[in-house]
Write a protein that binds this DNA or RNA. Structure first.
Ligand SMILES: [Zn+2]
Ligand SMILES: [Zn+2]
Ligand SMILES: [Zn+2]
Ligand SMILES: [Zn+2]
Lengths: 164, 164
DNA sequence: GACATGACGTTACTACATAACATAACGCCA
DNA sequence: TGGCGTTATGTTATGTAGTAACGTCATGTC
């Protein structure tokens, strides 16, 4: 079970995650750290079974529950998000603050290049919370995703979709 | 293959759907009509395999592609929506107008009673479209879902969740 | 009659997610 | 120091969601 080699950026984010978990008194175990690293390394959302395959390289005997339990932990801690439309996971780019565990995020999904952009637009969240409040609905969590064409792909000619 | 018996409300909605499809020059076949009826009859979002089971009662030999193809058609026509968080389908309550096929909908999902409420709040959609536009992103479709506690369940005592 | 189109049947498969139970490690405290 | 609860993980099996690929049949059209 050698530690997988992550990029410098990922290592930085992992160090932040470690600090965050320490402050919260929760355990960022080696397994969870590995899974978080794999999610962060991907430049696009990564499916659970894709993560499982990569995990197995250094973590022999990993099974679906192995990765799903790690993902559950990371979701709870707000270190990753699930993109529902893709059934896939991305690292949260708004961590590092020791605010509340989760935050209201929005995702822009490019149908052409697969790139996903995370937003944290207060106007969007405010509008949604307000609409819910008017109906007496108490919000606990939201999923906001928009599919379409990203700026790069909209500018590129039809035959050359912007690379991943 | 007897026609399944639907409620009066469902029959009314089915008649509207028929009119709509006729105007668009698309075929609301008997199979598609049955599946739409089954979705409309449910007071909660219905999964594809649940629909499949019910479909089989009157439609011997139905298989997953049978129901998924019908669902694809109904989604295209804007007659139903998919609730991503539940991997389940609900009838659209904003049809009957012969506007564009789809519309930007929002869903409130009660974690307690499972009830799902469809909204069509222009503020929410505007905020999201605006946020996307600022990044040069061209929207094609959106998923906006909020989980929490509905008004009825928030008012009810803990032991008595509001019925379905 | 050849041919395209659209809907549906049929078989098989892939992908996503969880239930249920076993094991190991740690801290706590009688 | 031995029992006990808690947390994380291992392990096996199963449940649930979704699609690929190909065949058939009806309709329309030139
Ligand atoms: Zn985030
Ligand atoms: Zn793109
Ligand atoms: Zn609708
Ligand atoms: Zn409720």
């Amino acid at each position: 079970m050698l530690a997988p080699a992550f990029s410098k950026e990922t290592d930085t984010l992992l160090a932040q995650a470690r600090t965050l978990c320490d402050r919260r008194g929760v355990q960022l175990t080696e397994l969870r750290r590995k899974v978080l690293g794999l999610v962060l390394e991907g430049d696009k959302p990564t499916g659970a079974y894709d993560l499982l395959d990569r995990l197995r390289v250094h973590h022999k005997g990993a099974a679906p529950p192995t990765v799903y339990r790690a993902l559950d932990f990371l979701l709870e801690q707000g270190l990753i998000h699930k993109v529902e439309r893709l059934s896939a996971f991305v690292g949260c780019i708004h961590q590092s603050e020791d605010e509340d565990h989760h935050h209201a995020a929005q995702f822009l999904i490019c149908q052409r290049c697969g790139q996903v952009t995370e937003l944290e637009d207060p106007r969007v969240d405010r509008a949604l919370v307000e609409a819910a409040r008017e109906l007496g609905f108490r919000p606990a969590g939201s999923t906001v995703e928009m599919e379409g064409t990203c700026a790069a792909c909209a500018a590129a000619p039809a035959s050359a979709p912007a690379p991943g």
